Computed example of a mutant assay.
Amino acid sequence: MEKKPLKTDFYIQHLYIYVSEADRMALFSGFGFGHFLEAVDMPENLLLLKHPYEEASFNMHTHLDFATSEEYSQLKRARSNRRSEFCWVDFRSEKQLNSLTAQEQAELLYLGHKKEPVKSPFFTTLQNEYVYLAGEEKEWTKIYFRRMEKLGALIANHFTQIIRKETNGQHFFRRRMRDLIPELPKEQFHKLRMDMGEGVLLSLADPEKTKNTIELHVRTVGEIDFMDEFWEDLGETIRKPLSGRIVYDRKQKGWK
């Protein structure tokens, strides 16, 4: 527990996560498509259920748009520049799209409209790894994982990217490549899965303020109904005691 309440400027990044293990789903706030692109090995193609990308290809069988991996940077820009719902599932080849049954197509349309599956979010024909569902306001992103172990890797990669970008420009951390801060171990987040089932806020402390360490603070905050109010009251939230912390000690060159 901190000796005195922390201020919001003590942190440079926050991420809210609520996990439903039974549904193989994680609800994020403070996490967008650009973050997703940087944090995972992206699938080959995305079937776009709701989207702002005007240059998408059109599949005649489903009457739905899709985008290939070569277009992901344009898709990211379109998502950033326009207010729009953004929902997709991944697939490997257009042959899979052309094999979708009427029932599967109906379930996909429901998924994009209601932001929840009729039955399973994973389709036999598509063999999709993810379902990505985001609202127009960008306050939340719901992601279904075929394999939940990918959640830990996603979070670890996300914060590793932020830490490296942040510390690269600071004199204290400016080192040769061999001294590059190592990746956050995904096992750290596997341990937090139970806490995530209650809703957690992960907060990355400003390295300039923590000096010899890099610290990711964990607070159990519960399931949030209104994300806009949650972020408005962030100052009050971060005064709550920590549930845990993940620390990189530069002298020992390791995470703990």
Rank of each mutant, 00 (worst) to 15 (best):
R176L: 11
P43N: 02
A56V: 01
L46K: 04
M60G: 15
T62W: 00
H63D: 11
I17S: 07
G169I: 12
E236S: 09
W88C: 07
T167M: 02
D228R: 10
F159S: 01
Q13I: 05
L100P: 11
V218C: 04
R193P: 00
A156R: 02
T210W: 05
E70W: 04
N45P: 11
F28C: 09
I238M: 03
F122W: 01
A39T: 15
M60H: 10
Q74G: 14
Y130R: 00
V19A: 12
I155H: 09
E107G: 10
F36C: 10
P5H: 13
L133F: 01
E229D: 15
E137A: 13
F10H: 13
E85V: 12
E104Y: 04
L97W: 03
R77D: 06
L109E: 06
T213F: 12
G197T: 11
D233K: 13
Y53D: 03
F58C: 13
K7Q: 06
K50W: 04
K211C: 08
Q96I: 00
W140F: 15
Q103N: 02
L109M: 08
L47W: 00
L180H: 05
W231K: 05
H171Q: 11
E232F: 12
A26D: 03
R164I: 04
E54R: 14
E38H: 06
F31D: 04
S84T: 15
S120M: 08
V200G: 09
R174G: 03
N157E: 04
E236H: 07
K186P: 11
A134P: 00
P207L: 00
P121Y: 14
W231E: 06
K142W: 09
I155S: 11
D228K: 09
S29N: 06
S57W: 07
L75Q: 01
R146P: 05
L234A: 02
K253S: 04
H61V: 13
S243Y: 02
E183I: 02
V247S: 07
G32T: 11
F86H: 08
T237L: 08
Y132Q: 06
S93L: 10
Y16H: 14
T160N: 04
P241V: 09
F173P: 00
